[in-house]
């Protein structure tokens, strides 16, 4: 199996506070990771270090594939419509027609109105737009901070199926959440690696059996 992402001995400090004291893990193609634990533990910091948005204080982060990332706070551009927010991340090499198709498919999958500005969308729709942007490029490494938060339970199944298909096509996903989502467990099956954190600072070393 090819490792898409590898962390070894990763540490992160903010001022004097240690958030990650030693994190070592290997995300392989086909994996779906769910990292759960209470708020404030540092799950978002861990995910942002995985994606390269934050730099680690120490240790090694190795990414073998580009990342699609779901920000915990959505990080949508307020003066761009839903359509334009998706178009913003598409590579310029993509033909106009192709880009339009891609965006139209994504908008319809996530049941979004393309002409609306983020502020005119409900909290759930904003979340779906952020998810749509994270996944529209089909980047092999999908790192999603709280993908199930703020959404109706009906979306749990759709997100879980999408991620399961993504993993089956050779991608991998790392998600954070507050608990083990039963629908995700059912859809992901043996691909799911569930990691429950309870202590701060975060230490990940001995991984559960695959």
């Amino acid at each position: 199996m090819t490792a898409l992402l590898e962390l070894s001995g990763v540490r992160k400090k903010f001022g004097g506070a240690t958030v990650l004291s030693s994190v070592s893990l290997k995300v392989e193609a086909g994996d779906i990771w769910l990292i759960s634990g209470p708020s404030g533990l540092g799950k978002s910091v861990l995910l942002e270090i995985m994606a390269g948005i934050l730099a680690a204080t120490g240790g090694l982060v190795r990414r073998a594939a580009p990342v699609g990332f779901l920000f915990q706070d959505d990080a949508l551009i307020p003066w761009l419509t839903a359509y334009q927010n998706l178009a913003y991340v598409l590579p310029p090499s993509l033909a106009e027609r192709e880009a339009e198709d891609k965006i139209a498919r994504s908008l319809s999958f996530w049941e979004l109105a393309g002409e609306k500005y983020p502020a005119a969308l409900s909290g759930g729709a904003r979340r779906r737009l952020a998810l749509a942007r994270a996944l529209i490029l089909g980047r092999p490494l999908a790192i999603l901070d709280e993908p199930f938060a703020f959404l109706d339970p009906k979306w749990d199944a759709r997100i879980s199926s999408a991620l399961s298909a993504h993993a089956a096509q050779g991608g991998a996903a790392v998600l954070s959440g507050h608990s083990l989502n039963p629908i995700l467990r059912e859809k992901a099956g043996a691909k799911l690696i569930y990691l429950e954190l309870s202590d701060s600072p975060i230490v990940i070393g001995d991984l559960p059996a695959r």
């Binding site: 948005i53 920000f71 990080a75 761009l80 913003y88 310029p92």
Partner: peptide, 22 residues
């Protein structure tokens, strides 16, 4: 927002588009 700038870097959004759109 520095996070929106980071988002642009993450997706390799071309500089000119970052300037014009954001």
């Amino acid at each position: 927002s520095p996070r929106l700038l980071a988002m642009g870097r993450l997706y390799n959004v071309p500089r000119l588009r970052v300037l014009r759109r954001f």
